[in-house]
Design a protein around this nucleic acid. Structure first.
Lengths: 182, 182
DNA sequence: GGAAAATGATTGCTTGGGCAATAATTGCTG
DNA sequence: CAGCAATTATTGCCCAAGCAATCATTTTCC
């Protein structure tokens, strides 16, 4: 938040180099440092594609991959790990940019959907392609295919413990049964 | 990181679940999601030990493990991934809390050292022990020893590509030769 | 030696997101 | 059915950190 920004921007250990240290400290330290480094390196590309930050891209991608390319605000907040207030602000920015719009929820008047606009969809695809190229360029040669698969599998287990809601790619917040997917 | 969150609050892909996706996208998504989840889970412990965020703990630990338990501001910024301005603020907070003090640099009047105080050292050790317990409690049973070692080794390679300066645990910014380590 | 360029720390301004409060709505219970 | 608790999205306030500007100092180059 950094972000990680960092607070992902929270990185709390230089122990990522001390061999006598508890493995948990080393592991978390490496995760935070890696996240911080990736964010800093990839942010400019996302900024130039969307004029927004990395979390905006995550929101857009999650919407794109949800039924009707929309999600309930409360579900989107849970998936992204933002508080409701944080998500409100993020959707405000995305709506101002024309990538997202808000739709009322007929089943629950407290709630609202965040939905991708046609422009949002186009820009999401473009940004994601750019993002992918940036990532490949950044980490080329570090790990081979097998190592990457191993890392992904192990990281996924750790992620599933600390952020299970993030795995909800298609979401359960489906469009109401009375409205066909758009 | 919050601070983070930083933007580490940056998490940019829900693709961490899509099997047809580019491996780089999946991998970075998992890193960001894991980092965000760890931060959110571990922040309260650090807050209750230090009254500060996770990055403050990282700063303290890096100082503790540097010659003379101090580091040049510019080196500390590079290691933590903070901008000079961001580090200035962080050191301000740590100095206000009595954990850190600033020392002039005789060899270069532009520069300053951030040095751990005795109180800072005590509190760092306590906070680190607490942190370690929190981590172990959080991720108990997710990975066995071998899997953890594998994950650490692979992550370290990725980290070394995206954040090489973070690996400088003891730093090169040694105390000037004319001053013995304190 | 002196001018220009580079460096290091700080500061003003801005951005993004958390926390707590709020209002409207919904679900649960007697 | 009514009251209460829980839920949902938003908003005011605040915090942390990035960016750019600034100033003092050091390094580089002619």
């Amino acid at each position: 938040m950094s972000v990680e920004a960092v607070n992902e921007h929270v990185s709390d250990v230089c122990a990522a180099g001390d061999p006598s240290e508890a493995p948990g400290i080393t592991l978390t330290g490496l995760v935070f440092e890696t996240a911080g480094g990736l964010r800093r390196a990839l942010a400019p590309g996302i900024e130039s594609e969307l004029g927004l930050g990395g979390l905006a891209l995550e929101v857009l991608v999650r919407l794109e991959r949800s039924p009707g390319t929309r999600l309930r605000m409360i579900d989107l907040a849970a998936q992204t790990g933002l508080t409701p207030g944080g998500l409100t602000r993020a959707i405000d920015r995305l709506a101002n940019a024309g990538f997202v719009c808000r739709e009322a929820c007929p089943d629950d008047r407290r709630g609202a959907f965040a939905a991708l606009t046609p422009l949002g969809r186009t820009r999401t695809d473009e940004a994601l392609r750019r993002h992918e190229r940036d990532i490949e360029a950044l980490i080329a040669g570090v790990l081979d295919t097998s190592e990457t698969e191993t890392l992904v599998a192990l990281l996924r287990r750790l992620r599933d413990r600390v952020r299970p809601e993030a795995a909800r790619v298609t979401g359960d917040s489906e469009a109401p049964k009375t409205v066909p997917p758009s």
